[in-house]
Amino acid sequence: SPTTSMAELDHLVQVISKSHLETCQYLREELQQMSWQNFLQDEVESYQSKPREVMWQLCAVKITEAIQYVVEFAKRIDGFMDLCQNDQIVLLKAGSLEVVFVRMCRVFDSQNNTVYFDGKFAGPEVFKALGCDDLITSVFDFAKSMCSLHLSEDELALFSAFILLSADRTWLQEKLQVEKLQQKTQLALQHLLQKNQREDGVLNKLRFKVSALRSLCSRHTEKLSAFRAVYPDIVRTHFPPLYKELFG
């Protein structure tokens, strides 16, 4: 773009990467220290035998924790806090869980098909009590395919910001402002991919991830609605207030 200089893009990459590292919940070194420890069979069985509502509550708590870090990330993205408050809320309501799914590849072990959860690495079978096997399988498949792109922390940071700044979310009041921020982020991401000498296909593969993320999130909402229809009081009294605000 004639209006965005290389220096500006470099600066954006730097700022967004720093924000990502400051808010990423787990550093890669910390995860390595956990030595990729998997749950033992009796631990897996204990998760599987939890009542459905208890497991849902546990997962809602974990998702909410992760989302709080994403909110902090958003606040540190250049220009995000200059948007009107309505749009900040719209972008977070629609995008925070998507970023949690993107970030999941950092805590995912592709070889064992396990994800860091509640202190150890868990396979999809750990989440059986939720009663959402199809969604869990899709989430694991998504993490695996994100991992296969081998994105660096910088690239992940830029892609996360790009997702958060999606200008096509419904109910945005200052769409144009968001569009400008997203375009700048996309340029910075392209610039970074070129600089890192990534092959041309990576950006295209990331574009496909955008629709996959939307599908995962809408399926999460469907599953929550189905759960809430059976356990309205559990959601009302035991689920984290932030989770209810975002997905209620």
Partner: peptide, 16 residues
């Protein structure tokens, strides 16, 4: 605003 009380709060807390 009431509907997104916590989100508002989180957005208003200063980043540290």
């Amino acid at each position: 605003k009431e509907k997104h009380k916590i989100l508002h709060q989180l957005l208003q807390n200063s980043t540290s």
